[in-house]
């Protein structure tokens, strides 16, 4: 080595990045198998999601949509999406191969989303309830008529309908 550091001469990654001591090497065939597996998994999950989406569509088209059932299906879709996200991050982005502490620095801050989501959604819902209580114009003009309303005029619209 000459008397000063020349990045073009010592070209190994560990020379360019002195803070890194080794690099991940994975077996070629093993790796390809994993990618293939993950791709198939992601595709299958997406297909299931689409199927549930269409199912919800058909429930809505039916005579008396069961709000609870729809909500349950939507919950399933959310869980499937999180599973998809897990596979993308862990396999495609190689986070699963990193050191545990690194994984933690990514995952732990994401927990902030829990309260972020709960508070925002809860307050959005509360705003709707307040407006329905104090702003009759809003209530009358935006509340969907009960499904095929002609037969059951007096019925209150389902509370959950705003979320669908």
């Amino acid at each position: 080595m000459s008397n000063h550091y020349d990045p073009t001469k010592d070209i190994s990654p560990s020379a360019a990045y002195p803070e890194v001591s080794f690099h991940h090497h994975s077996d070629d065939a093993e790796f390809k198998r994993r990618v293939k597996k993950t791709t198939i998994l992601l595709s299958v999950i997406t297909i299931i999601e689409l199927a549930i989406g269409l199912l919800i569509y058909n429930i809505h088209k039916g005579d008396s949509p069961n709000a609870l059932l729809v909500l349950m299906f939507k919950g399933v879709v959310c869980i499937l999406t999180i599973a998809k996200a897990y596979y993308i991050v862990s396999v495609f982005m190689h986070l699963g191969d990193e050191i545990r502490n690194m994984i933690m620095t990514i995952v732990v801050p994401l927990l902030l989303f829990v309260w972020f989501i709960i508070a925002f959604i809860a307050d959005g819902n509360s705003y709707k309830n307040l407006r329905n209580k104090y702003d009759l114009h809003f209530k009358e003009t935006t509340t969907p008529a009960p499904h095929h309303s002609a037969e059951k005029p007096g019925e209150k619209p389902a509370e959950k309908s705003g979320k669908e």
Binding site: R131, P144, S161
Partner: peptide, 10 residues
């Protein structure tokens, strides 16, 4: 999501 929950219809 917040706006959606603040609406009666979506």
């Amino acid at each position: 999501g917040s706006i959606r929950f603040s609406q009666n219809f979506w």
